[in-house]
Amino acid sequence: MYGLGPLLESLFKKIGVPTFWAEPLRAIIVSVVILAFIMVVVMVLLWLLRRFIAYMQSRLGPNRVGPEGILQPVADATKLLIKEDITPAAADKVMFSVAPVLIFLPAFLVYLVIPFGKGMVAKDFHMGIVFVLAVGGVTSIAIILAGWASNNKYSILGGMRSAAQLIAYEVPMVISLLGVVMLAGTFKMGGIVEAQSGGFWGILPRWFIFYQPIGFLVFFICVLAELGHLPFDLPEGESELVAGYNVEYSGMRFALFYLSEFSNAFAFSAIIVTLFLGGWKPPLAFIPDWYILSPIWFLSKVGVMVLLLMWLRASIVRTRIDQLLALGWKVLLPVALFNFLLTGGLMLV
């Protein structure tokens, strides 16, 4: 086994850290590494999003701070950090402070189970997928909390929309994943990647997207809703709800919402890649899956997914809440169920 966790373990053994301290120490180091990684990812995504969407909209986007504007996110972050932090007088003080932390927590925890490369996973739980779904659900609770605690009508409406969205989308999302789980025979993220090795005719890789095209589509749409991206950014809905649940937040706390949004965009792209696009496996079946190259394959696939998300973001009209719920309950849920039955049936045959 490679990866950060085992690596640290052997390192600790070598320098003789007592076993009592080894585990917490390891947790702290892993957390710091993940946190640093998230920061870098968010900075890159922020810049990419702004430039990419500007390109789509025939604008220039930020291009002044640093070459091609790559230091813009740094400037933005600095600005957010030194802004005044306002708590509205009518807000529920405790909940108002808890919500931003609570929203960042799942964004952070999801990274624990993502296999970035061959064996490069912080903790490959046996119930990896279930963990991702459970943790992802917390995001919505944090949004509802933020909306409620702000004591602002726009915020509460945003929170309520988020709750409705959560129920409508978690269900088809889970069911669409069942197909993958059935094929792989495991909930483990690493195991699912392993199950996608090999190829058709030695060229095309055996990715689950080819076995589960319907499941992929349903999951992808649900991820859009989960992320609150256009066309499903209803909890924020700028033109209707100003900024929705985070309208009262400013400064550092607002930065946490922002951070978790981008961090989630990356994390869920990574999950899509892991579950459907062969994770860290090379894109063609005949390429040997070397340890060194695996994170590169992984990150470039995630990059493509992220760009796809941004592309969609720039080219779709925001839906209305009733249309969104109708899509979730009346279309995605039956389709996901059908996919589940189809997979089961085919496996029996």
């Binding site: 789509m56 909209q57 779709i316 009209v317």
Partner: peptide, 16 residues
């Protein structure tokens, strides 16, 4: 109108 509906790309294109 596009901007109101959250379709900023077309908003920019129309202004272009």
């Amino acid at each position: 109108a596009c901007h109101i509906l959250g379709f900023d790309t077309l908003f920019m294109q129309f202004w272009r």
